[in-house]
Structures are given as structure tokens and as C-alpha cells.
Design a protein around this nucleic acid. Structure first.
Lengths: 212, 212
DNA sequence: GGTTGGAGACTGACTGGTCAGTCATAAAGA
DNA sequence: TCTTTATGACTGACCAGTCAGTCTCCAACC
């Protein structure tokens, strides 16, 4: 099964197609054949690479998350303090901006994080949260539990930003806004002190806040 | 169809069962008959009250949201400024604490807010956001776009809190923490200035932050 | 009081259709 | 030739929605 097919990249081809199709329609509403067609292979071929529809589905998420976590760790390594936190958020925004279907996929199936089948996914989320928690702790002096709480709040904001960022937005810039707001409160979301620079302010609102 | 059945409250009985069943399993993985069994009626009966499975599903969400919006407006009316904002958040927390399955349901199908079929749901969310936005604007002087962004950030935090609040937690207390953190930043999440009161701090972390 | 007839609420077996996963066969490569 | 990879027709299971028939209630009549 492995040698030739791996060379052909058929597995990746199938994963990409699956991400795309599952991100648009509910798992149970997607016939396996539709994924096969999107991947440009026969239905039977799909079962050569993944034992079940379910495992194909989770492979799309888990393999992508492994890449994300590696990128996050690399991004964070080069900074410290508030800069590292901003780099973390910017990395997330950038990663998902380059992978819209993946972002939609993870949004659509987010509830599986709370279900038994989502164990592997949950484990990866824990790794990611741990990276974030360490950064938060290095920025704000908080007791452990309070730091966990604060981290979840930050990640909730990042999630909102990821789901709403338009193509043209600069991740660094949005990240800076999110982090500033997180650390210093809503009022501090303004550019500096009193008034927001016109263009940028509007761009932020589009980037992070408004539903499309 | 109406007289006897309305008296028997069979419609509400079906809605409650549907909320319960759909909150636990994926829409397409739930046979209509399972909802009927949970409601203690025959499958055919279900189709006397709701024309399709899909419409039954949306009825559970829409009718509940109408109640929530009414409660929110009432809760807010009695306060102003930061107190009103806290009352809003506390009302949300309380509403969903009394309706766990509904909270899980809305979490599971949240992605439908972005899809065409979710139009009615989206419209109700807009109403709710508008209430929140007005409160945020009354607490922090922000330009309209920035206020929208800030409101979405607050609602993201509330969402996290709703999904993680344990049974015993006091909504007012959690709400105060969320609002304080939102307005004044992560560092202000601490009880007052420097150190958190032990017990309460831990309770908050459990309430709002940690995944179960 | 007791009986009867009919309206409408209720039911679940049935139908037409769909789908996950299999496997016999074909094609490609060594 | 022989092995590996690919395919899609096929099978058994499942399900949304229907509809012919049952049951319950009540009003009208004896």
C-alpha cells in the first residue's frame, strides 16, 4: 500500500479533499463517495488509506494540529513576555488564514472536544493550551487557577478572531489588538489612550468582531 | 389537532425531548423515532406538531432564544452602567445553568449560525448582540466598530463561562469576574489589586476556565 | 343513566431511497 | 508473469416521512 502511493501523495490529496468537504457539510450528511470524487479517486481507494470514514475525519484534524503546535512552539521560541504572547496569537491567526477550510472544520465539530471519541483531539488542545498558559503566566502575575481561566478567555477571543478575520488582514496587527485588549481591558483596545487611528480601527472591527 | 393536544402540552413535551436528544447526538445520527420515544409519543404524532425533522430541530432553539432575549431585556432594565453589563452576563449564565441540554445543543450546532438555514437563529443572535453592544458602549467610550469588536470578545468569554460553569457556582459572582476582566484586563481579574482570596479564586477557575 | 356515532388525535408498519464498507476484477508496474 | 494498487457495483442496514387504521373523547339521542 505504502511506497508508490506515498510517492504519489494520494494520501495528502484525500486528506485535503476530506477537510474541504467535511468543513462544508455535516459528517453524517457527507457520503464517502463525495470525498472520493473531490479527491479524484475511487471510493475503494479511500479505504486503502483510511480504515473508516470516522478515522479519515479525525486524521484531517489531528495531522493539521500537529503542524500547528510545532509552528506555535517555533514562533514563541524567538520572543518573550508580551511579544511572545502576541507572536502566539499571530501564529494562530496566520495558520488558520492559510487554511480556511480547516478553521471551518474545527469550528463545525468543536463540540466533539467534549465527547469520548474526541480524546486525541482534546489531548492536542491541551498541549496548545499549555503553551498559551505559560505565556500568559509570564505576562501577568496570577495564581495557577486564575491563569488557566485567563488563558481560556484569551483563547476564546482568538477563536472569535480566527473565525472572522478577512483575507487581507495582517495577523500581527490583529494579534496585537487582541493581546492588548486581553491584558489591559476593553478600554485599552483603543490605539493609544483616547482616539483610534481611523483606518486601522475600522479594519480591526472587521477583522475580529463582525459576523460576516 | 389543537384543542386536546395543547391542553396535554404534548408540543412542549416533544420540544423538551428533542432538545435533550439532539444535544447528545448529531442531528443526522438521531432517528426521528428516538425523539418520539424520548417524548413518549408515536413517531407519527411528532409529524402532527412539526412538519419536518429539521423544523422540529430549529423550533427547540428559536423558541428558547425568544425566552432568553426577553429575560435579558428584563434583567438589564433594572440597572445601568457596569451593573447592567454584569446583570446581562449573570442572566445568560443563569439561563443556561437552568438549561444545560439547551446550552449543549447550541454549542453543538453553533456552526449553523454561519449557514443559510440558520437565518432565524442568526437574527435572534443579532438581537442579543445588540443588547450587549449597547451596554458595552455605555461602559467604555469606543467608536462603533471598536464597540462591536469588544462586544464579540465579551460574548466569547461568556460562551466559555456558560460551557464550563459547574452546577453550584453563583452566576452573579462569575459574571462579576468576567465583566471585571473584560473591562480592566487579565491582571484585574484578581480579586482586588494583588492577591486573590483563596477559595473564591479556585472556584472561579473551575467555573469559567477549565475544560471538564 | 346509558348508548351510539363521528371527529380528530394518535400510531407504527411500510416505502422509496440512501449509505458505509466489501470484494471481484482490472490496470499498472516490476 | 506476478504483485501492488485502484475501482465501482453490490449488499445489508438504516431512515424520513406517509397513511391506513385504531383509539379517545364527547355530544346527541334514547
Amino acid at each position: 500500500m505504502s511506497r508508490r502511493s506515498v510517492q504519489n501523495g494520494k494520501r495528502e490529496q484525500i486528506l485535503r479533499a476530506a477537510t474541504d468537504v467535511f468543513s462544508r457539510r455535516e459528517f453524517h450528511a457527507v457520503p464517502v463517495e463525495d470525498v472520493a470524487i473531490a479527491a479524484g479517486v475511487g471510493k475503494g481507494t479511500l479505504y486503502l488509506y483510511f480504515p473508516t470514514k470516522e478515522q479519515l475525519f479525525y486524521a484531517t484534524i489531528l495531522e493539521a494540529l500537529d503542524v500547528l503546535i510545532a509552528e506555535l512552539r517555533a514562533a514563541v521560541r524567538a520572543h518573550d513576555g508580551e511579544n511572545a504572547l502576541t507572536a502566539f496569537v499571530a501564529c494562530m491567526l496566520d495558520f488558520f488564514r492559510r487554511r480556511r477550510p480547516l478553521a471551518m472544520l474545527m469550528h463545525r465539530y468543536e463540540h466533539r472536544l467534549r465527547e469520548p471519541e474526541g480524546g486525541e483531539w482534546r489531548a492536542r488542545r491541551v498541549q496548545m493550551v499549555e503553551v498559551a498558559r505559560a505565556l500568559v503566566a509570564s505576562c501577568v502575575a496570577l495564581e495557577p487557577e486564575a491563569a488557566t481561566l485567563a488563558t481560556e478567555m484569551l483563547l476564546a477571543s482568538v477563536r472569535t478572531a480566527v473565525l472572522n478575520q478577512p483575507d487581507g488582514e495582517d495577523p500581527e496587527h490583529t494579534a496585537a489588538t487582541v493581546v492588548r485588549m486581553f491584558l489591559h481591558g476593553a478600554a485599552a483596545g483603543r490605539r493609544n489612550g483616547k482616539s483610534t487611528r481611523r483606518g486601522k480601527g475600522a479594519a480591526h472591527a472587521r477583522a475580529v468582531g463582525a459576523r460576516p
